[in-house]
């Protein structure tokens, strides 16, 4: 009974992970611009990979495999957002065009490409008191 349940759970996690990665790939082809593609690929893709690795841990069910699988999962979950952020940021500031359906862009006109200063757009007073507290500049 337990064995059957464990096998079912392994198969389910494998299929879920594979499905997520397939959706990520479909999204990579279909979605219209760089940031939206990042939403689909880096996160759904990484989550799918983590799920399949978890299925491996469940399938072998011994300490050495589980420890290594946990290491892979932690690593993937830690690095996926960092990679997404890095690529998205680099692409955005390099000037990759956004989709024409984009409704709002509050960043573009507050960024100065010469000095690399990014204004917060809050009232001047609030910004100054914040700057004084930490005294940090670009």
């Amino acid at each position: 009974m337990t064995e059957w349940l464990l096998e079912g759970l392994t198969a389910l996690m494998l299929l879920l992970g594979g499905g997520l990665m397939l959706i990520a790939a479909i999204g990579a082809v279909r979605l219209p611009d760089l940031p939206t593609r990042l939403h689909a690929t880096t996160k759904a893709g990484a989550l799918g990979a983590a799920l399949t690795i978890a299925a491996v841990a469940l399938h072998f069910a011994c300490i050495s495999v589980t420890a290594r699988a946990a290491a892979v999962i932690v690593f993937i979950v830690l690095t996926a957002p960092v990679a997404a952020h890095l690529i998205g940021r680099a692409g955005y500031f390099v000037g990759v065009p956004l989709w024409e359906g984009t409704v709002k862009d509050e960043l573009r006109d507050r960024y100065d490409p010469e000095s690399h200063v990014l204004r917060s757009g809050l009232t001047k007073q609030a910004a100054e008191s914040g700057g004084k507290q930490r005294g940090r500049d670009a």
Binding site: A25, L34, T41, A46, G48
Partner: peptide
Amino acid sequence: VALELIASLVVGFIA
């Protein structure tokens, strides 16, 4: 982005 996705897919494949 595509390369990153391919890497994720290969990890899944290996699993």
